[in-house]
């Protein structure tokens, strides 16, 4: 049991981040806060990927002469890192689009509070 908890310690943080992100998106009324929640949620996923890339006792995936590349255990897995570079960029792009939309919403309704917004739309 202890092994289980310790073996997955990074994973628990992922879950916490995801839950916080979900909470922000579902409960908060302010649209900017929702966007922040969204960002936290994406970060949780990124953290998960980065955490699974690790190997105990391995170094960063940049070839150096001290560690022979034939021994795979010397280097961390480069694939999740690469994937997460992409995912981060996707997250940035999403944020950009989200804020562009928020600006247009604000220009039209002059509020970013969801309740007020819904009232004004009615």
């Amino acid at each position: 049991m202890v092994d289980f908890v310790l073996g997955h310690y990074a994973y628990w943080f992922t879950i916490i981040l995801l839950a916080i992100g979900l909470y922000g998106m579902l409960i908060k009324d302010n649209l900017v806060k929702k966007t922040i929640g969204l960002s936290i949620f994406q970060t949780g996923v990124i953290l998960f990927f980065v955490s699974i890339a690790s190997k105990w006792g391995a170094t960063v995936p940049v070839k150096s002469d001290e560690f022979p590349v034939t021994e795979v255990a010397n280097y961390m897995n480069p694939l999740p890192h690469t994937l997460m570079l992409t995912a981060i960029v996707v997250g940035v792009a999403t944020l950009g689009v989200a804020f562009a939309l928020l600006i247009t919403i604000y220009n039209r309704y002059e509020t970013l509070n969801e309740q007020e917004l819904l009232e004004k739309i009615q």
Partner: peptide, 10 residues
């Protein structure tokens, strides 16, 4: 460009 667009608003 995103920055510029946002500064100018809609």
């Amino acid at each position: 460009s995103i920055f510029d667009d946002m500064i100018r608003g809609e």
